[in-house]
Amino acid sequence: MKPVVGTTPRVVKSDQEWREQLAPEEYAVLRQAGTERPFTGEYTDTKTTGVYECRACGAELFRSDTKFESHCGWPSFYDPADSDAVLLREDRTMGMRRIEVLCASCHSHLGHVFEGEGYATPTDQRYCINSISLKLVEDAGD
């Protein structure tokens, strides 16, 4: 996996506009790259069919058919909904090298992606995403 950062976000707001739109805990994760505590997120164990959108801008990020049980404490997906849905960049905080996942539309922090962990998924990747960064839009009829 080669980390890349895309061009200018399509959704651009001032810091004040983000603060007004997002609840303090949403802002801390989405705009300040925070992390919610494990096993506390709304979507950690959700099996509902639908599309997971960016809570900040509404861009489609992941689909429920790529969500899997990793037992890590956060929702896990093996692939974004579209190859252009997310951006990846190197993160060297916390004394380790990780790959940060950002919404391609607004550059909000979503979580991190890991690979080579041995999960039986088609991509051998685990997009470990904060529930608070997502909004699930259920499929009609669910």
Rank of each mutant, 00 (worst) to 15 (best):
Y27K: 04
C72H: 06
L136F: 08
P75V: 02
P9Q: 05
S83D: 15
T7P: 12
V137R: 13
F114S: 05
P38Q: 06
E25C: 05
R31W: 10
E60Y: 00
L110G: 10
W18K: 08
V137D: 10
D142G: 01
R97E: 11
K135L: 06
F68W: 04
T49V: 13
S64H: 07
D139F: 10
A33V: 01
S64C: 00
G58T: 09
R31H: 03
T46S: 14
T93K: 14
V12P: 02
F77H: 05
K67S: 09
M96T: 02
G41C: 04
C72G: 05
Q125L: 11
A104H: 01
C57Q: 03
V113T: 08
G6P: 06
A104G: 01
A56G: 10
R98V: 09
C106M: 07
R19E: 06
A33E: 13
E20T: 11
A140K: 10
R19T: 07
W18E: 09
T7K: 14
G58W: 14
Y78P: 01
F68G: 00
G50H: 01
L88G: 09
G118Q: 02
T123V: 09
H109S: 04
G58H: 07
T8M: 15
K67E: 14
P75W: 09
Y43R: 01
T121H: 15
Y127T: 08
Y119R: 02
D65H: 13
E69I: 10
